[in-house]
Design a protein around this nucleic acid. Structure first.
Lengths: 200, 200
DNA sequence: AATTGTTTTAAACAAATGTTTAATTTTTTT
DNA sequence: AAAAAAATTAAACATTTGTTTAAAACAATT
């Protein structure tokens, strides 16, 4: 019974190739080659390119959007604790899969309708989450969108930009891995600075 | 002499289609159709798909990376003024071309070698720019990469995330256009808060 | 050991791809 | 007005694409 092994080998190969080249630039033959498997087996186990891609995409969307939800709705933590927990969790998660944000964002952009329905954040009422309620109490004058954009921008953007520049042999962001590691403790401090700003 | 008109029509069509679908998903027939022109004319004027794409890509990389350089090296402005000028300039520039960051980042990721040599920031010594020298004076303990990542993350990330969510009919970032407009004045205030933080 | 079901293979498929060719139309030059 | 040059067209090209077919190899069951 080698069945599960082959199926998982193909899925893992698809993960790697899709993440690297995107949907359009990936061929079924690329996946088969990376899995070390006959071309027909990809269709045999997964029916079509669209089908296997959507499996991977669902996984990755869950990973980047779904993972934040438990932290956002947690009524037992303070705003500061949420910031600390989410930035640490995100930096850990994305460090293992540095191309995750760029992959997910750019595939959604190319096919928004196809993936809208499996967007995990659609299922919760964003404005009624604990984190947003806490922010509104703290900064009643500021649109909570600003808070989320600042927070996620500071956390996620470094992966989009830096992993890229290092591939281009630019030296702007040398030691980027240790820089990103430092951000686990720095981002919460900076976010508190912003929250306490007299602007609010 | 309709020559220039046709050539520019094709280039403009290529701009639109490439920005929307990316290199791999764009066909020569898509470009010809969008330009309202015979398929052969695309090769007649631009020789190959790679060639016309690289023209567009050079343009866009100049727009997103090149436009920031004059502000970074300007010795006549303070750090605060640079922050104000760059965030305003970027928000104006990208608002007219909201998919610019995602397009450039994801195409570079798929082909880092091809575009490394035309990366405008390779030509300047990043660490010796005025903005970085000013930051190091202000915050000697902090790696300047953090400063640039915070600043660019707060400025650019909203376009990557928000334009996307609105296409997905999520309501997380409603009124995103006015929110982004507000950020022209808010980002400099937040950045100053971060710069003045007792952490540094 | 024979039969059944499952997995793997090589070959072929039609459709789509980027590109080229050669003829035709249009424009420019003489 | 004739000749030359440039722009446009339709058709074909060789590859590559995702997918299917049908036979072979393998495993499980009787």
């Amino acid at each position: 019974m080698t069945e599960i092994l082959t199926e998982e080998k193909i899925k893992e190969a698809a993960r790697i190739v899709f993440m690297e080249k995107g949907y359009a630039a990936t061929g079924m033959r690329d996946i088969a080659a990376k899995a070390g498997v006959n071309l027909s087996l990809v269709n045999y186990y997964f029916r079509s390119k669209r089908n296997i891609f959507n499996l991977i995409m669902t996984e990755k969307m869950q990973k980047i959007f779904g993972s934040i939800i438990p932290y956002m709705i947690d009524e037992t933590t303070s705003l500061e604790e949420k910031i600390k927990n989410i930035s640490t969790m995100y930096i850990n998660t994305i460090s293992e899969d540095p191309n995750l944000p760029l992959f997910v964002f750019s595939e959604i952009q190319k096919n928004p309708e196809e993936f809208a329905f499996l967007f995990p954040l659609k299922q919760i009422n964003f404005m009624e989450t604990s984190i947003i309620k806490q922010f509104k109490t703290r900064c009643p004058e500021i649109n909570p969108a600003h808070f989320m954009l600042n927070f996620l921008g500071m956390t996620i953007f470094p992966f989009i930009a830096a992993h890229l520049f290092s591939n281009m042999q630019t030296h702007i962001f040398d030691n980027i891995l240790s820089v990103i590691e430092e951000r686990k403790t720095l981002i919460p401090l900076w976010m508190n600075q912003i929250l306490d700003s007299p602007i609010n």
